[in-house]
Lab assay of single mutants.
Amino acid sequence: NLRWTSEAKTKLKNIPFFARSQAKARIEQLARQAEQDIVTPELVEQARLEFG
């Protein structure tokens, strides 16, 4: 299971509600691909840039 830093959680809250669950799934996918067990603000930002 993935842990989220408080900064990453804050960044996730800045994503519009309607896109948040999809973004969260993508962020967690990116973390797993990078073999990380902690979601960082950088991963959230990477996903945000993908979504535009």
Rank of each mutant, 00 (worst) to 15 (best):
T10G: 09
P41T: 09
T40P: 02
Q33E: 13
D37K: 11
S6P: 14
E42A: 08
E28C: 03
F18W: 15
Q36C: 10
I38Q: 06
R20D: 03
S6I: 10
K11M: 15
V44L: 03
E45Y: 05
D37E: 11
Q46H: 07
K11H: 11
F17Y: 10
R32G: 04
A31E: 01
A31V: 04
V39C: 01
I15D: 03
E50H: 09
I38P: 08
L12R: 01
L43T: 03
L12E: 01
R20P: 02
L12F: 14
F18S: 06
P41E: 12
Q29L: 09
N1L: 10
R48Y: 15
Q46C: 07
Q36G: 04
N1Q: 13
A34E: 06
L49T: 08
A23W: 10
S6E: 15
E45H: 05
T5F: 02
A25T: 09
N14C: 15
I27P: 00
T10V: 12
K24D: 01
A23M: 14
K13L: 14
K9V: 14
T10P: 00
E28P: 00
A19D: 14
A8V: 01
A23E: 03
L2I: 11
S21C: 14
R26S: 04
A23P: 01
N1T: 11
E35C: 13
A8W: 00
A23H: 07
T40E: 03
E50V: 08
T5R: 02
F51W: 13
S21K: 12
E50Q: 10
F17W: 14
W4N: 01
R3M: 11
Q29D: 08
K13R: 12
I27F: 01
F17L: 15
L2V: 08
E45Q: 06
E45G: 03
L12V: 04
A25C: 10
R32V: 08
A23I: 15
S6C: 10
Q29S: 08
F18H: 13
E42N: 08
Q33M: 13
R3C: 10
E35N: 15
N1A: 12
Q46T: 07
W4Q: 01
F17S: 15
W4D: 01
A31Q: 01
R32A: 06
P41S: 10
N1M: 10
R20F: 04
A8H: 00
N14Q: 11
A19N: 11
A34W: 12
S6M: 12
A25D: 07
